[in-house]
Amino acid sequence: MIIEEAVFVIGSIAILLGAIYDLIAAIGLLRFPDFYMRTHAATVGTIGGAALPVFGAGLVALVYHPLGSQRFFMAGIAFTVGILILIIAPTGSHSLVSAVYFGKVGKKPKLVVDQLEEDLPKRSDVAELVREHEELPGEEEEPKFFFRGMKR
């Protein structure tokens, strides 16, 4: 069947390309100087290096006859893992970078433009929020706008 051979070749090329993406991302993660550039390499590694070969493996498993009738189960597992990685990996990277930026973990590199800096809560703002809150009698609620670095 010519269609099966075409699907097999496409899947194999996806697996090989994903492996090469993964190697490039690993070298980048090892060599880049600061955390934000390392995040750039890491997102290449998760989408290009994990989601692409998983979809390729699913295509290969659809036409791989030595697997018997189990090959449809295998393709279903592969596509499920691929869609989960597509949803989960950007969310995790985004939350990690937001933790590093707003929590002031480590040393901040020199940035040319930093437009997010205006959004950081100033210490005076937080103090005023707490003072306003203490004036009201009988309320136990914590202020919503609260970061760990601002506490002291």
């Binding site: 993660l29 290096g49 994990a50 493996a57 893992v81 990690l96 933790a99």
Partner: peptide, 18 residues
């Protein structure tokens, strides 16, 4: 920092799943 290690764990686990 710890964030670098957790970023490496993230990449490592997704690639290991693939």
């Amino acid at each position: 920092t710890t964030a670098d290690i957790i970023l490496a764990v993230d990449c490592l686990s997704f690639d290991m799943a693939a």
